[in-house]
Simulated assay, not measured.
Amino acid sequence: MKFKKLVLTGAAGRLGSYLREPLAAMCEELVSSDIAEDIGKLYDGERYQKADLAEYDQVAALMEGADMVVHFGAIVDEKPFMELLGPNFVGSYNVWEAAYQAGARRVVYASSIHAVGMHKKSDFIGIDAPHKPDTFYGLAKCFTEDLGSMYWDKRQLESVHLRILSAAQVNNSRALGSWLSYDDLIQLVTRAVDTPSVGFSVIYGVSNNDRAPVDNSKASFLGYRPKDNAEQFAEKVLAEEGPVDITDPGQMCHGGPFAKVDLGESGIAQMTIVDDKKET
């Protein structure tokens, strides 16, 4: 089945760069959007439309005639609340409301483990774990998951919320459990798009890691079957990192460094993320 029109927000971001080509192949028209001036060379069937998520009229203009929206646009770090309010909170409302008004069927949302980041990894939480955000950033993910639930209950707008753990190169011990490879990311998003009926759904974005700290079994109907396993990196990572501090919430909680930083302080600054964005 080929969709008439899909919308991708956050297309200029690292994860968005890997989603553009497979999404373009699934539809007649892919409208990629971000606040950047351009995103370089476009794929067949793709066009770029700049839009600020905090501005409803700009978001609504993206949605005209859309079948589904893949919403990856946001500030992807902890910041003071007022800096996140526009893009991460108001932006989510704008996406859902504009999608509903345009008659779209579904929103696929890049949620995050940070919605439940203060849960301990040893608890092996499932998709029904109560919200326990580690930051204002995580709180925005909780807000949007609840927003999606409400729009399904009240307006029958479907949504799939992808609680991504860590989609980045494996260079620390936390990532041995939390890694989501780019190939598995693509599979995760495409299954969220092409599954016939999803209602309101939550699923963890994590690869088939031996040390995965979450339980995805209740979301198996979405058809996501990850292939990659971070264990291939374990010997090197563990030798380089050495023993961890078991009193450190950054080691013990799902949120990693985000569980440790003060509210409003960058979590990304505590991490070593390689910017291996896909080039067109």
Rank of each mutant, 00 (worst) to 15 (best):
K41M: 00
V90G: 03
I203P: 07
L23S: 03
L84R: 12
A24E: 02
L188D: 00
G65Y: 02
H114N: 14
S220R: 10
L8T: 06
A12F: 09
V274L: 01
R163H: 11
C27Q: 03
A12V: 11
F233S: 02
G177K: 08
F3S: 03
Y93V: 12
Q187F: 05
D194N: 11
P22F: 08
A104Y: 05
S149E: 11
D38E: 14
P133A: 07
G117S: 06
E97C: 00
G138H: 10
D228A: 00
H119G: 04
N229D: 12
K120P: 13
E265C: 01
N216T: 03
D248T: 14
A192D: 04
D67I: 00
R14Q: 15
T144E: 10
K5G: 02
S166F: 15
V59S: 01
A212K: 12
Q49N: 09
L62I: 11
V70D: 01
K2H: 04
F136C: 08
N208C: 00
V69Y: 02
Q270D: 04
K4S: 02
L6T: 01
F200D: 03
S197Y: 15
D34L: 12
S112C: 09
A74Y: 04
A167H: 01
K154G: 06
H119S: 09
M63P: 02
Y48R: 00
T144P: 07
D77N: 14
F221I: 13
G205P: 10
E78I: 14
W96L: 09
A239P: 06
F3M: 11
A24V: 07
E21F: 10
S122A: 15
T272F: 13
A25I: 13
V198E: 02
M26L: 11
K277Q: 13
A167C: 15
S112M: 07
F124Q: 13
T9C: 04
A25D: 10
V189H: 00
V70G: 01
R155S: 08
V108R: 01
D183S: 07
V116Y: 04
M82G: 05
G16E: 11
G65E: 02
S17T: 15
Y48I: 09
N171S: 05
S149A: 10
E235C: 06
I268R: 12
D262C: 06
F81C: 09
V107M: 05
P243D: 03
M118K: 10
C142S: 08
P22G: 05
A54C: 07
K120Y: 14
K277R: 15
K227R: 08
A12S: 15
Y18P: 12
S159A: 01
D248P: 05
S111V: 12
N88F: 13
E241M: 10
L62M: 07
A61Q: 08
Y224L: 02
L23P: 04
Q187G: 02
V193M: 03
A219S: 13
D38I: 09
G73H: 01
L176M: 10
L176H: 06
A219M: 09
G250S: 05
D184E: 03
Y182A: 01
Q58C: 06
M26T: 12
